[in-house]
């Protein structure tokens, strides 16, 4: 565990999240997506990534966070999945951070709701917590919380 693992970090509100840097394909400026009627609410729509059609997921909605304020900044984090590239819409992009395994801890029992199964745990950084997301679960919208209720 000597080799530090690298995470691409980003923010939703004040909270810092991280995805394995190898899973992240690129960061692109937000562009208005094409809406998909009847889609699960967390699917914002489709964006054109150099000729590739990519599903854009609003990470705030996916994690059950309050909606982004009107006109708030957002960035697409394009990640690689088994099913091709998927874009996650986040508020702000952070640095790539190297952390060691010793800093990791599983989420506490008090973490409840949809987020519980989507969060693998957190790295305890000196000044904040870096929340690590389970990418496969994040993008498998069809299996969990699919219906718009």
């Amino acid at each position: 565990m000597a080799t530090p693992q690298q995470f691409c970090t980003f923010y939703l509100g004040e909270q810092c999240y991280g995805l394995d840097v190898l899973q992240v394909q690129e960061i692109v400026r937000s562009q208005p997506p094409t809406r998909v009627p009847l889609a699960p609410p967390m699917v914002l729509g489709l964006i054109n990534l150099r000729g590739q059609i990519v599903t854009a997921i609003d990470l705030r909605r996916r994690l059950g966070l309050p909606e982004r304020s009107e006109g708030g900044e957002s960035v697409n984090v394009v990640v690689q999945t088994d099913d091709g590239a998927v874009s996650l819409l986040v508020d702000e992009i952070g640095d790539v951070l190297g952390v060691t395994h010793q800093q990791f801890e599983r989420p506490p029992e008090t973490l409840r709701g949809v987020a519980r199964e989507l969060i693998r745990g957190a790295y305890k950084l000196p000044d904040r917590l870096l929340v690590i997301l389970d990418l496969e679960k994040i993008v498998s919208v069809t299996e969990t919380a699919n219906s718009p209720a």
Partner: peptide, 24 residues
């Protein structure tokens, strides 16, 4: 469409239009 949207029977897929935007 990707798996997140596969379940919607009314769409066969998506296409990129001449102006670069996407249409279902």
């Amino acid at each position: 469409l990707q798996k997140q949207l596969k379940g919607i029977a009314v769409f066969a897929g998506a296409a990129i239009m001449g102006d670069g935007r996407i249409a279902l």
